[in-house]
Design a protein around this nucleic acid. Structure first.
Lengths: 187, 187
DNA sequence: CCTGAACCTGAACTCCGGTTCCGAATATAT
DNA sequence: ATATATTCGGAACCGGAGTTCAGGTTCAGG
C-alpha cells in the first residue's frame, strides 16, 4: 500500500500529502488520463518527488482509489444501519453511484478489468462486498427485491449506470428504469 | 469516408480489401488496442500501404465501424418487419447487443464519447435511429413498453449492457433484469 | 515489350508520456 | 554550527506506437 512509514522528515510528509491531494483532485476529474507532470505542477513539486513517494503512476492511482474505497465502505456501513431494508438498499446504490459520478478514477477502477495491481485495495473490496451482500439479502428477505436477486447483480446494475455517466444525469434515468422495470401495463 | 474511388489498380484494390479484412478481424477482437503494424502483418503488407489507403488509424477504424453500422441498420430494418411489436423490439435489442458483443471496435465507437471524426458514420447512424424510434413507438403503443419509454432509453439500456460485456454472458442477465424489473412481489 | 505512373516496403523518424538520476537544497542530530 | 542523511528538482532518458519517405517494384496502356 506504499504505507506512510513511520518517521518521514517533516517536509517529506507534507509533500506526500500535497501529492495525494493534487492527484485526488486531478484523477477525480479526468481519471487515468492525467499525466504525472500535471500532478507535480499542481502540487508545486518536481516529478521526481512523486516517484520518491510512489513507485509508479499506478501506485499513486491505487492510493487514491484506495481512499475512495474506504469512503464507500464507510458509506455502505452507514446504509446498513437503516432499519428499512429498501432504504438501506437505495442508500447504498445511490451513494455508490454518486461517488462514481464524482470521481473518474473510481469509475476507472470499477469499470476496467480486474487489475492484479489493485491488490492494495483487495481488503477494502472484500469488506465492501460483505456489506453489500448483507444489504441485498435483507432487501430480498423483505420482499423488496426479487427473490433471485444476487449481490453480483448489484455489480451489473452499477456498471450499467456508470456506463451512462456521460454528461447530464442520464444514469439516474437508467437506474430508475432498472428499478421500476421497463415493461408496460399489459402482461 | 475514404471512398473507394473509381479506378484503382487491380493490386491496389486487392490490397485495400486485405487491409479491411485484417483490420476488421483484429479490431473486432481487441478494439482500438491493436496497432498498425499488426494489421499490416496480418494483411501481408507493409505499414506504408495502410497509410496509402487510409490517412489515419482513425480513418481505418472508422471504415470498419461504418461497416458494422450498415449491418446493424439492416438488422434493424429486418426487426421492424416483425408483426409483433414486442418481437420487433427484442429482435432489435438482442441483435444490437450480440453485434456489440462480437465486435470490440463497435463497442468502442458506441461507448466512447461522440468523436466528431466519426462523421463518416453520421448518415448511417441517423438512419438507424429513425428505425429504432419507430420500433420503440410501436412497442409503446401496443402497451408492451411503459408509456414514457423513449428511444433515448434504448441507448441507456444498451450502454448499460455493453458495460457488462466482460467475460461470460453477464450482459444477458443484465438485460433480463432490466426487462423484467428488479422489484419484488411486495409493493 | 517498354515506359511512366501508381503502388509497395519497412527502416527511420516523431511525438508523447512515464521514469530515472544526480547535483543542489534542506532537515535533523550532535 | 557542522555534519550527514534525506529529500527535492527537473532536464535527460527511454520505449512504444503512429506516421513518413526515399527508393524499389508492379501494373497497364501504347
Amino acid at each position: 500500500m506504499t504505507a506512510p512509514e513511520r518517521s518521514l522528515r517533516a517536509d517529506a510528509r507534507r509533500n506526500r500529502e500535497a501529492v495525494l491531494d493534487a492527484a485526488a483532485e486531478l484523477f477525480a476529474q479526468r481519471g487515468d488520463a492525467v499525466q504525472m507532470d500535471e500532478i507535480a505542477e499542481r502540487a508545486g513539486l518536481g516529478v521526481g518527488t512523486l516517484y520518491r513517494h510512489f513507485v509508479d503512476k499506478r501506485a499513486l492511482l491505487a492510493a487514491i482509489i484506495g481512499r475512495r474505497f474506504e469512503a464507500i465502505t464507510t458509506l455502505a456501513r452507514a446504509a446498513d444501519e437503516a432499519q428499512d431494508p429498501w432504504v438501506a438498499f437505495e442508500t447504498l446504490l445511490y451513494g455508490y453511484l454518486e461517488s462514481a459520478e464524482a470521481d473518474a478514477a473510481f469509475r476507472f477502477a470499477l469499470l476496467g478489468p480486474e487489475e492484479p495491481s489493485w491488490n492494495d485495495i483487495a481488503a477494502e473490496k472484500t469488506d465492501f462486498s460483505a456489506i453489500t451482500e448483507r444489504i441485498v439479502r435483507r432487501a430480498v428477505d423483505a420482499g423488496r427485491l426479487r427473490e433471485d436477486f444476487r449481490a453480483d447483480d448489484f455489480v451489473l446494475i452499477t456498471r450499467g449506470a456508470m456506463a451512462n455517466m456521460t454528461g447530464a444525469g442520464a444514469w439516474r434515468r437508467h437506474v430508475t428504469l432498472v428499478l421500476e422495470g421497463i415493461r408496460g401495463p399489459e402482461l
